[in-house]
Nucleic acid binder design. Structure first.
Length: 666
RNA sequence: GCCCAGAUAGCUCAGUCGGUAGAGCAUUUCACUCGUAAUGAAAAGGUCGAGAGUUCGAUUCUCUCUCUGGGCUCCA
């Protein structure tokens, strides 16, 4: 038999000479496909284009413009980078170099503990392009573990990976297991090791597949150098990581780089300064922000809305102090678990005080302040509570990760019977509030126990986890599980939202807690006149006001909807003669409840309009002779066309509608 | 906390191979009074992040610290 039969992706069958490869299959379809092909899927498994196909195989060609294809391009490019680095820095050890979202990285240890500089990056880039120009083949071979250990004898990280996989033996590899997942991509645990050789000198261990030759690559850019711990272990060696991005075409690469530039323009740290919303003065210390008047207006709108919704939702408002005796946090367990994350103690003559890192212990004290009846449950305590956490220096990030912040924090005490309903209605509440701020795309996560980082019995954890899971199922909100991601006191549901340019942010959290009620000896008198322990839910919708503000700034790119905008309309008199009318009109709009300012005619109109547009105001209003005569406005809406001769009353109604439309009480 | 890169006017940045600094925008003033994205002129604005060291002299070189950016780790 000299022919083999191949089934293509569309279901059709073709015959090829024995020994035919996926490249031959692609060639039989068309030359453009050959050019675009980077790998193949053979019987459901990714494979190199140039391996001989078995008879009867199902073959799909993977092209560079698919997700799988880009993955192959990126992974192959990372090999090229490793080769470039080992050429430029003889003696460099390389560890792992996977494809990641939008790109790839490779971790190195350079001889003499050298670190990469930006100049080195330029040199690496140049050498990579030489390697690509020389069109080296990626030649796959397989060998025994012992042979691989010998081949990589001078590459300790590779040897460590091989040894680890050998230690696993034939045990099935769980790609979600952090301890093996990284290595699993590099080595086949079946007892053999596959390697890809580009040159007599450069060979890397890899499961593949790869492009047939380096000539297929080239649309890449090295992005940055970073330190990264070997195997993610903080106690282990710090390797040098180079990140790059790679695409199937110049256009796709350029588009990606353009997206990065656009995302940078939305950066809340930049917009916060440009729009005069808030700042992070060095004098305050790291991770602490001050809110300027314009930012404070946005914040007040957020807070007012939040308070209104909580009031409507049956919450009771409370206030608690910013610091407390350390005994409180011993009782709660926070000192035992998070002392490093708390600001250091203040030794006073009557005890040791700490800034509060959480509001929950104080809310528990409120619950405990008197005997509680089952008739009071669910008891929902709400506070915009400001907390302080000493986040490690390297982790701070604008408003997103900050040391002093205010949570829209609530603790709900309820009976076991009420738990399901409470969580389910809470999910409705969360999504409804988030929708009011313009978010429509949500992802829920259920975080489960990490036995090493938690307190409480298995029974309690199981009960709490099931309650959350059941509520998610009942609610119909799709969710994913994050194993071991729970807080120390209980499992949680996190809600991520997608912003206007598709990035995900974790905002809301609902946490189930059997532990604090126990630690604080909380109890209520039930209908049976006996004492029972309530269950406690922790929840925040914004997460923190600061972080939510940061997300809003980036989501709206600083162009807040009318109900949130610090200035809703700016009136520009065409000339000084129109200023009195401008002021009168501004007063009328203010009387109608709007935030309006006037910029006098000291500069040209065009310049003032430009300035107002850069401030991203919802409306710019121009008033001249006609308007003074007719009690009208020129209306220049953000993102719309200029309208002339709009009666003031009409505009008042219109702005009112805009504002109302922003607060949909869904 | 770890690796790398930074910190110069309110903002964005240039510059000084060691001799105490400059632009644009913003601000103020003057002129212009203009109908939808940058009028012109002038003025003012900086102990060049902080401290120490080397030096006749440090914003510049060295060290430490603080803060920032990108990662890693962490995130109650």
């Amino acid at each position: 038999m000299s022919e083999i039969h191949i089934t293509l992706a569309d279901g059709s069958q073709r015959s090829f000479a024995r020994g035919a490869t996926a490249t031959d299959v692609a060639m039989s379809i068309g030359p453009r496909l050959v050019k675009a092909a980077v790998a193949a899927e053979v019987n459901g498994h990714e494979a190199d284009l140039n391996v001989a196909l078995p008879d009867g195989a199902s073959v799909a060609i993977i092209t560079g413009d698919s997700d799988g294809g880009r993955h192959v391009l990126r992974h192959s490019t990372s090999h090229v980078m490793a080769q470039a680095v080992t050429q430029l820095f003889p003696g460099a050890k390389f560890s792992i170099g996977p494809a990641i979202t939008d790109g790839f990285y490779y971790d190195f240890e350079l001889p003499g503990a050298k670190t990469f500089s930006d100049d080195d990056l330029v040199a690496v880039d140049k050498r990579m392009r030489e390697i690509i120009a020389s069109d080296q083949p990626f030649v796959r071979s397989e060998m025994s573990i012992d042979d691989a250990l010998e081949l990589f004898a001078d590459q300790p990280y590779k040897c460590e990976i091989i040894e680890r996989v050998r230690a696993l033996g034939d045990a099935p590899v769980d790609p979600d297991d952090d301890d093996v997942g990284v290595d699993a991509g590099e080595v086949d645990p079946g007892g053999t090791v596959s390697v890809y050789r580009n040159t007599p000198e450069f060979v890397d261990m890899c499961r593949g597949p790869h492009v047939p030759s380096t000539g297929k690559l080239g649309h890449f850019k090295l992005m940055k150098v970073a330190g990264a711990y070997w195997r993610g272990n903080e106690k282990g060696p710090m390797l040098q990581r180079i990140y790059g991005t790679a695409w199937d075409s110049r256009a796709a690469l350029d588009e990606h780089l353009h997206r990065l530039v656009e995302a940078e323009k939305r950066d809340h740290r930049r917009l916060a300064v440009e729009l005069d919303l808030l700042s992070f003065p060095n004098e305050l210390g790291g991770g602490l922000a001050v809110w300027h008047p314009k930012g404070a207006i946005v914040r007040k709108q957020m807070e007012d809305y939040s308070r209104q919704r909580h009031q409507d939702g049956g919450y009771q408002f409370v206030y608690t102090p910013h610091l407390a005796n350390g005994k409180l946090f011993e009782t709660s367990g926070h000192l035992a678990w998070y002392k490093d994350g708390m600001y250091p103690p203040m030794e006073m003559d009557n005890g040791t005080y700490y800034l509060k890192p959480m509001n929950c212990p104080m809310h528990c004290l409120i619950f405990r302040s008197r005997q509680r009846s089952y008739r009071e449950l669910p008891l929902r305590l709400f506070e915009l509570g400001t907390v302080y956490r000493y986040e490690r220096a390297g982790t701070l990030h604008g408003l997103m990760r900050i040391r002093g912040f205010t949570q829209d924090d609530s603790h709900i005490y309820c009976t076991e019977d009420q738990l399901q309903d409470e969580i389910a209605s809470l999910l409705d509440f969360v999504l409804s509030v988030l929708r009011a701020f313009g978010f429509t795309d949500f992802t829920a996560y259920l975080s489960t126990r990490d036995a090493k980082k938690s307190v409480g019995s298995d029974e309690i954890w199981d009960k709490a986890t099931e309650a959350l899971r059941e509520a998610l199922v009942r609610h119909g909100l799709p969710f994913k599980v994050k194993p071991g991601d729970a807080a120390f006191y209980g499992p949680k549901i996190d809600i991520d939202v997608k912003d206007a340019i598709g990035r995900s942010w974790q905002l809301s959290t609902i946490q189930c807690d059997f532990t604090l009620p126990e630690r604080f000896d909380l109890e209520y008198v039930g209908a049976d006149n006996a004492r029972h322990q309530p269950i406690m839910l922790h929840r925040a919708l914004f997460g923190s006001i600061e972080r939510f503000m940061g997300v809003l700034i980036e989501h709206f790119a600083g162009a807040f909807p009318a109900w949130l905008a610090p200035v809703q309309a700016r009136i520009l008199p065409v000339a000084t003669a129109h200023e009195a009318y401008a002021q009168t009109t501004a007063d009328a709009l203010r009387a109608a409840g709007f935030r309006v300012d006037v910029v006098e005619a000291n500069d040209q109109l065009g310049k003032r309009i430009r300035s107002a547009k850069l401030d991203k105001l919802p409306y710019v209003l121009v008033v001249g002779d006609d308007d003074v005569a007719n009690h009208t406005l020129g209306v220049n809406p953000r993102g719309g066309e200029v309208e002339r001769n709009v009666p003031v009353d009409d505009f008042v109604a219109r702005l009112g509608e805009d504002v109302d439309a922003g607060v949909v009480l869904a």
